[in-house]
Every structure is written in C-alpha cells, then in structure tokens.
Design a binder for these strands. Structure first.
Lengths: 238, 238
DNA sequence: CGTACTCTTGATTCACCTCAATCTGCGTGG
DNA sequence: CCACGCAGATTGAGGTGAATCAAGAGTACG
C-alpha cells in the first residue's frame, strides 16, 4: 500500500485547517512527528473515558464520534471526514476522551501524542489559533443541533440531520446526491434524537413523495430542494 | 462609582482563565487595551447576527446568551458569570455573533475589539491556548446538553438544568442553595427544551416533596441530593 | 442455506404540548 | 395608601406526536 509514499508527501497537510498558514518547514516537522494509523471499518481510534493521549487528523475514510449514556443509549456527536481533526481534547486540557471514535469505512489517520502536538503548538502558535477556529465552528454547529432538538419536531430534525450529512459527505450521482458512506436508520435516529422506527416511517414517506431513494445503509437525496422545504418548514406554495 | 479604580486594578485579570499564566506586564497591556462597559438589567451586550466586533470578559453581574429561531422561539445557550468570557466568536473567525447576550442583573464587562484581542493573542500565544481550553470545555458542556435532550425525559432534563445552575451560580443560604439571579419558569423551559407549564408543574411537585422552594423568579434547592437522584434517575432505595 | 442484521409496518400507549382560565405578587400611579 | 394592571406563575382539560410494543419481510454474508 502507498503508506510509505504517503508518509513522505509534504502536501498531505496542505488542505488541513489545523496546519493552515504553517510554513513548509513547519509542515515537515509536523509530519515527521506524526504516526500513521490504519482503522478498519468498525475499529475504534479511541474510546470514551479513555485517557486522551493523542490528537488526530483523518487522512482518508470516515469516522463517527459517539457517546453512550450510563443507561447504554448511544448518540452520534458528529461524523469526521478527510482533513478534519478529531480527538481535540488531547490538545485542550481534557484528561479523557468524551466520546468514542469508530471507523465507518476503512480509514487512515495521522496521529500526534499529546506531548508532541503540545510542543508543536508552542513552536507554531498558528496551530492553536487554527484549532480554536475549528472548535468555534463545532461549538456553533453543536449549538444549532441543540436548538433544533429543543424547538423542532422529529421530521424537521431528520431533514436537518440529512441536510448536514449531504453537505458533509454528499456525492453527486445520476439523479441525486448520495451520502458517501454507510448510514443505517439507527444512525440517523442517534443523530437526530429519535428511534429507528420513526426514521424508517419518515424516510419511507419521503421516498413515496420522491424526495429520497432508500437502500440498505444507503440514502440518496433525489430532490434537495424538497428536503430544505421540510427542514425549514416552508409552505408548499408561496 | 469605582469604575475608575477598577480600571487601574491589575489584579482584575488574575483569576480570569483567558489571561491565566500571562506575565504581569502582559496583563497590564491587556487591561490598557480594554474598554469598560456597563450593562443595565435587560440591556444587551450584542445581538444575534450583528457583526462580531468585540470580545468580552464579564467582571460582575450575570448574562444570558440566547438564540431565536426563525419562528421566533427563544432558547438559552448558556449563562455567563463573573470571570467568564463571552463573544468568543470575535476571536475565532466568526463574522457575526451567533446569539444575543442580555444582562439578567446589572453587570460590568471588559471589552476588546476584534483587532485588539487579535494582536494580544499574537503577542501572547498563551491567550489562544487558554481560549481554546475554555471553548473545549463549552463544547463538551453543549454536547452533554445535546445528549440529555436526546435521551432524557423532561423531568430529568429540568433536574440537570437546575443542577447546572446551582453549580454555576448557587449561593448557600439557610436551608438550601439559592440560584443567585432572577430565573423565571420560562427561562428554565428555554434552557431545558420544554414549556413553562411543564416546568411549573414539575417544580410544584418537587416543592411538595421538599426538594425545592419556589418564589417569583426565585429558586432555592432545599435537598440537593434529591435533585441528583432525579437527574441521574436513581432508584429511591438501593 | 441458514443466520443475523437491517428495515418496514401496524397497533397501542402515554408524556408532554396546547389551549384555556385563574391566581398572585409586585411595581405604579391616582 | 390603596386600587389597579401586568408579568409571572399555577392548574385543569384535552389532544397528539412519537415512543413503545410487536411481528414480519428483505438482504447480506459466512
């Protein structure tokens, strides 16, 4: 596999937000200090409550970050795509990971130990600023979801959740936009705060109306506009 | 008023997280660059969607940060107490404030323009690291609320919400812990994603059981342990 | 070819919202 | 100082959205 090649490619960090604005020597230094990690589908990068010893940037693939309640219920905090960082707690004072990161497709990640990334952030202050920007974005995103949870009915929340997935991992295919990784009804339920039953019913109704096309762990949005109409609760005619 | 005196007091930033670890000269510089702002009860430090031109640290008083949905429903994102920062977007790339900050008691805040705080963060990298730590904490806190919203029933959510208020602004009084600023039933509803009716019913039942004591915009927790039992859904006898 | 996982669909229940009426404390103005 | 008005709070009745309970069908994989 091109693992070795990848390791030597300094362009690898070019489009990564955290290292944005870093001079080439800094990127080389960061790459040299990093270690590779391959994650098979279903494998976990780290688990909830485990000591936060490393910080990662996903290179390829897709992860989901989840939390489980003491009662055993699971919720999805967010999906991580290529070029996105995860395990940020390791760089912002947290002692343990607040969630579990699981690969939903085969993935590769670049990792830095807590000490390594700390030292890098000391040398290159831009890293901290970039990380803060990303965290700010995630905070706003999470607050939006909280607002949706508090004010919207299930159907709108599902529409918003799927719109978010489309924005993050949508791939144009003939006749629509496909979510580019396996998502089950259960996943969508854990993302929107409902049950797989309600998700199934809602999506079936949408399929009936031609808004989406369903498959096993597969979802294609045929009519993105209709999805927005549902998400924003717009009247059908205006 | 001691506004002038305050302005000269370099100890003012001592316990403020964002400026933690800053050398005295840095604190002087930060203070010199700051401007004071007094906020009467009900007055707003900034409003949602307004240009994010300043970053603040609350010196005294209490604010609530809220968001309104397009439909006009309001939710409370968080309460801000003394020594806490707010308007963080101004330092993390956001163009507009995502919420509105309203004083719930007469308050004083220290403000820095976006340019000023940016320059300070460049000179003293510790500021960015501290800010990131705080944002990390808030992100986790918001994720916890999201998890509660998705998995818990109203009564538990209210218990968690009030527990959070107690931790943040509880003041020991004879026979309990008082929330140290005016909170209406509506506020608690907007904080926990329910209606003021349900909050009123729930709190009345708790008062009946001696868990809390109620007043107009006033709440005293008489039995903190019982509150935890409700929040964690523990059995009464174990 | 069986087994297990994902998904669908129907029936039933209930927690909470909505609608509605009334009450109460508190500031205000006559 | 007391009557008034109003925002905040309480309480009841009724409706319903979505969870829960339950059964079965479709699909992938070893």
């Amino acid at each position: 596999m091109p693992l070795q090649e990848k390791q030597l490619d300094p362009a690898l960090l070019d489009a990564v937000d955290v290292f944005g604005g870093l001079d080439p020597s800094g990127k080389d230094e960061a790459l040299a200090a990093a270690h590779w990690r391959k994650l098979e589908t279903g494998e976990r990068a780290f688990e909830q409550d485990q000591e936060a010893d490393a910080f990662y940037v996903l290179s390829a693939g897709r992860l989901k970050v989840t939390q489980v309640t003491p009662e055993g219920q699971e919720i999805i905090i967010r999906y991580i795509g290529p070029k996105e960082m995860f395990g940020c707690v390791a760089v912002c004072g947290g002692l343990t990971y607040p969630g579990t990161a699981t690969a939903v497709t085969d993935s590769w990640a670049l990792g830095w130990t807590r000490a390594t990334i700390g030292a890098l952030a000391q040398t290159y202050p831009g890293i901290a600023l970039n990380a803060m920007r990303t965290m700010g974005g995630r905070l706003q995103d999470t607050q939006s979801r909280l607002r949706e949870m508090q004010t919207e009915r299930v159907e709108r929340r599902i529409a918003h959740g799927i719109a978010r997935l489309v924005a993050q991992a949508g791939r144009r295919v003939e006749g629509g936009i496909l979510i580019d990784f396996p998502v089950s009804r259960q996943d969508i339920a854990e993302l929107t705060g409902t049950t797989l039953h309600t998700v199934s019913r809602t999506l079936s109704a949408w399929q009936e109306r031609g808004v989406v096309e369903l498959g096993r762990q597969k979802l294609t949005v045929r009519d993105p506009h209709a999805l927005v109409v549902i998400a924003e609760d717009l009247p059908l005619k205006e």
